[in-house]
Simulated scan of single mutants.
Amino acid sequence: MKRQISFRVLGDRYQLELSTEDNNRIFEIEKKSGKFDAKKFYKSFFEGMAETIDYELVQDGTLDREAKYYFETLKGILADVCASVNETCFSQEEIA
């Protein structure tokens, strides 16, 4: 099942949020620094997963040019990490 991660602009930062039954998982990037913390990103959306992952990044509201750039970049990163985690952790060879 595809799960949606919302991308939104909140003042001085970009926020990605995945709502789950248990809690909300949130990852943020400050606009000023643009720093992407890969470890926090992984922990926010991938740590402890027990089944294949299928995420879709969706925008929440209208995005300006800079926000669109971050959205598209993060969308690509998310897709690549999902594919890599699924291949590495949930490949058919390891299951068999």
Results as ranks from 00 to 15, higher is better:
26 I>M: 07
84 S>T: 15
84 S>E: 14
47 E>R: 15
49 M>L: 07
84 S>R: 14
1 M>T: 09
3 R>I: 11
42 Y>P: 04
46 F>H: 12
95 I>M: 09
45 F>G: 02
1 M>R: 08
94 E>Y: 01
38 A>G: 10
4 Q>E: 11
30 E>K: 08
91 S>K: 06
63 L>Q: 08
47 E>M: 14
85 V>T: 05
15 Q>M: 13
29 I>E: 01
92 Q>S: 09
63 L>I: 00
71 F>P: 03
24 N>K: 13
88 T>P: 00
83 A>F: 13
2 K>M: 14
23 N>P: 00
81 V>Y: 07
71 F>A: 10
28 E>P: 04
93 E>N: 14
4 Q>C: 09
31 K>Q: 07
14 Y>T: 11
19 S>I: 14
55 Y>N: 05
58 V>Y: 01
89 C>V: 02
56 E>A: 13
85 V>E: 08
71 F>E: 03
54 D>H: 08
17 E>N: 06
68 K>P: 00
45 F>Y: 02
31 K>F: 07
33 S>P: 01
80 D>W: 00
73 T>P: 04
29 I>T: 03
72 E>M: 06
39 K>D: 02
90 F>T: 10
63 L>K: 05
79 A>N: 12
94 E>I: 00
86 N>Q: 10
90 F>G: 07
53 I>M: 06
18 L>Q: 12
70 Y>F: 12
87 E>C: 02
17 E>I: 15
27 F>K: 01
2 K>N: 13
6 S>F: 08
70 Y>W: 13
20 T>R: 10
61 G>Q: 00
34 G>W: 03
66 E>S: 14
83 A>R: 15
7 F>D: 05
30 E>H: 01
83 A>G: 13
83 A>H: 14
85 V>Y: 04
96 A>N: 11
56 E>K: 14
96 A>F: 10
27 F>M: 10
18 L>F: 04
71 F>W: 01
13 R>Q: 15
56 E>D: 07
40 K>Y: 01
79 A>Y: 14
71 F>Q: 02
30 E>L: 09
67 A>I: 02
